[in-house]
């Protein structure tokens, strides 16, 4: 494994200076057409250019976790922690990759409960802080392949989704599992404004088939890099399904329901011809607007040393999960 650099301690430009500079530049006419307004989808770039740095002090604290280490690294080299923390898709906090880190730090994580119900014998609510202590947490080093054709390798900490669900005793009618993200426009600017939130209908919802959910690779993550999740990564509780595109990994979950019919999934609803319900990583089925045959690797190299590699069927987990889909036409059920 390569050495993981620490987050750089950057000088922070005082807020006032930063604001003045922004106003100055806007005044010079470059903020034409309002696109450099704070509301803009491009605020992230402007913030970056004008010196709004993220330092440890402005980040929500993350608690160290106790967990069983993942010893089998499968020869994967980890994506540096600072990149995992600063390159996120979490449209509830804005559409630019750096928006979630900038806008999510105030997310109130305690108390946080998750309601589990539907086709189960023992519905209930789970307090995430208890989950952190009571459950036996495991580390899982997984490849993570975004539908946008970039990939990371992330050391998650969490519990197997299947083990979690079994506590609630799913009935024989439980054919699918439905997940829902927090809906709180006061905390999530993307839910307040369609412009910030990329025109998505919130709350974000996702779903899995029950056999997918019960598969030992499916993880309910509570942490990464040995500490609790950062808000931008979906704190306090998120889904990780390593053989599927990243958008299946719903963040900041408040509700899990076992259901009989295939539940709705946000991106699938928005653009069904581009994002399927299954969303298994598949180099043979392109996104209509880009190739899925290869992916840009996000590792510790600089932006000017871009590297790509061939994308693997089921993101490299085919020997473990392909049988879930035997007999299915994966071109049709993408």
């Amino acid at each position: 494994m390569k050495k993981i650099p620490d987050i750089k301690e950057n000088d922070v430009t005082p807020e006032a200076v930063y604001k003045q500079r922004r106003q100055l530049l806007a005044g010079m006419g470059f903020g034409l057409a309002g696109a450099s307004l704070p509301l803009s989808g491009h605020a992230g770039v402007f913030d970056g250019l004008f010196g709004k740095d993220e330092t440890a002090s402005t980040q929500a604290p993350r608690k160290p976790l106790e967990y069983k280490q993942d010893k089998s690294r499968h020869g994967l080299s980890l994506t540096p922690e600072n990149k995992v923390l600063s390159h996120n898709n979490f449209y509830e906090f804005g559409t630019a990759k750096t928006d979630p880190q900038q806008n999510a730090q105030g997310l109130k994580l305690e108390p946080w409960t998750v309601e589990v119900g539907g086709e189960v014998n023992k519905p209930g609510t789970v307090d995430v802080s208890e989950l952190l202590q009571s459950a036996t947490l495991v580390e899982r080093i997984y490849r993570m392949r975004c539908v946008e054709a970039w990939s990371m390798v992330i050391p998650w900490v969490g519990i197997e989704l299947g083990a979690f669900l079994k506590q609630f005793e799913p009935t024989s009618k439980a054919k699918y599992v439905a997940f829902q993200t927090l809906y709180d426009p006061e905390q999530m600017p993307g839910q307040r404004s369609r412009f910030v939130g990329g025109g998505i209908n919130y709350p974000y919802v996702e779903g899995l088939r029950i056999d997918e959910a019960m598969h030992p690779l499916s993880l309910l993550a509570v942490g990464l890099y040995g500490k609790t999740l950062a808000p931008q990564n979906g704190a306090p509780l998120r889904l990780v399904v390593p053989w599927k595109y990243g958008f299946k990994g719903i963040k900041s979950i408040v509700k899990i329901s076992l259901v009989e019919k295939q539940p709705p999934a946000t991106w699938n609803l928005l653009a069904p011809q581009e994002y399927g319900f299954y969303a298994n990583v598949n180099p043979a089925v392109d996104h209509p607007r880009w190739s899925q045959a290869s992916e840009r690797i996000i590792d510790n190299s600089s932006v000017f040393e871009a590297k790509r590699k061939a994308t693997l069927p089921f993101n490299g987990y085919a020997d473990q999960v392909a049988e879930l889909y035997s007999g299915m036409d994966l071109k049709k059920y993408y």
């Binding site: 992230g44 970056g48 880190q101 932006v303």
Partner: peptide, 19 residues
């Protein structure tokens, strides 16, 4: 400057293309 100093996040490719 912003890209090489990590001010566009750890992974600035998309930000550069968009900007």
């Amino acid at each position: 400057q912003a890209a090489i100093n990590g001010k566009l996040g750890g992974e600035p490719v998309e930000a550069i293309i968009h900007f």
